[in-house]
Design a protein around this nucleic acid. Sequence first.
DNA 1: TAGCCTTTGAAGATT
DNA 2: AATCTTCAAAGGCTA
Length: 568
Amino acid sequence: MLDKVKQLCNQWSTAELFYHRSIQRLGVHSDKSSSKTSIYSIMALAAIALTGECLITSKNSHIKSDCVDWEKNDNKIDQQLITNVGKPKTLAEVENIILQFASTVYEQQYCCDNYSSSNLKGIDKSEFKKSSSPSCIWHPNAKSYGTPNELEQCSTAAEIILEFASLTSSAALINMHGNLPKYSNVVLDDSATVQDSIIRSPAVLNNNYNQLPDVSFVKDSKLIDQVLTTSAISTSNRDNSIDTFSRNLEISQNRRKSKFARRIEIPTLESSKSNNLKNRGDEKYFHSLKISPIMNFEETASPISKVDSVSAIHERVINNIFKSQLNAFTNAACTKSDTIVGLSECESLPILDAPYDLTIGTKLKNMNLETKNTSSIQTNDTKDISNDKKKPHIKKPLNAFMLYMKEMRAKVVAECTLKESAAINQILGRRWHELSREEQSKYYEKARQERQLHMELYPGWSARDNYGYVSKKKKRKKDRSTTDSGGNNMKKCRARFGLDQQNQWCKPCSPNLSVISTVNNNGNVVINSNAAANTIGVSMLAPITQKKMCSLYGGNEWKWSYGRWKRS
DNA sequence: TAGCCTTTGAAGATT
DNA sequence: AATCTTCAAAGGCTA
């Protein structure tokens, strides 16, 4: 198991390296809005996965026998892939394979471009389709882009990737020569080509849509089960695992609008169905294949919905597969480091300080930077320095408001044309309080999931670990301001104007939304001078605690209810 | 260039 | 138990 995880990690890092290098060598931009590039990317990724899998499984004789089937095919690429099975390929060899994959696809596309943009009259489309339609690169013998039943079955992750990749490119090409759809409701970019419009077309996407969620070609049900059980959240759907997996795949396609999708105007009845799929561009399939935590997961600014939640879960599921295996490996390596032979291999493994949240890629990128920053922070305390070096900085999970703020910030910025975060945060704070309990509960639930996931990913982590991460200078200043204005002034204003004239209080004393507070676990309302005591997430307008209220006005029967103090 | 500002909530630290 | 402190995000501003 340990060896497998090691190999998986190595394949992982190698795949990423090869992917980027191949993209560079192709001279194409990694612009995700380019559907052509996405196809290249998928093909390259598929080739990488295949290559990596050959390396991994080369020790297994039964796998090797699977590879023998490829020899039946005349494809030179396949020949190359199996040439050195069992021997680690050099960088140049792997890159050449990838480039051949990509160039093959390009030639086919270029050829199709010419045909599609020229006069197709007189050409037997079916014949052309038969001869030029690309085959599945994993199952080259399956010449047709047919129903799932016609597909050979897959049993490994790499096979699934390849199947997706092949279907994606196949679907685009076949549609070019099949039923060319009408795109009256589509406004092309100036730079958009006919080819672009075809590949991005709803019909093409529809075709893909019909194919992709179907995982019937996945032979090994354990694989699906593994995917599902890795998610702590989706366990309730396990009984219907295939459907759930399909839904996750389906919904994940719709996470983010493509550049093209944003330019679709005036939905018509005819296009209503396709508009539902308008975002399912090729890049979506690339997104769906993003199994590397290093690849960016971009967050949308769309409102929270079930779609988003499931999509997020889907992302998490994929990432968790590798994280869980890596964690298992890491823990085993640490606890048994004395007994593991060849531990030096661990050092060559990529450092996957995987972040906790849903935007895995971005987080990882940031965290890597922050880890460097952390190590660069110089203090006189040698203990801190040594600790920083030992531990990568793992950030706190976002709370409900932070999640809300992250999502709505762009919207507020667009509306208010403000850029200063402090001002925007004030607006967001007000809007947060204007939200209904139901609306807020969505974010609380999301935050709860974040904390849960964070706990699973970093079992030993504590918020205490991050104490002192921010400079102590800031702490000193805050302490001073809190003492000066928050403490004494509040007493003065309350004493001077009383609770009935809180509108006369100065800002630091005012029980406005910035000072308010919360109901703690005991039902007491607590002042939130700068932060809150242990809360249950119920924000209410209450300037003082019950205890203080009682001490000020006598008795102990005061209770905060529906926005005002009442004697019980 | 580091820290401030500004928000709410979670959690650790302190009283 | 109650209260205080810190840190999560964000990006313009300031010393």
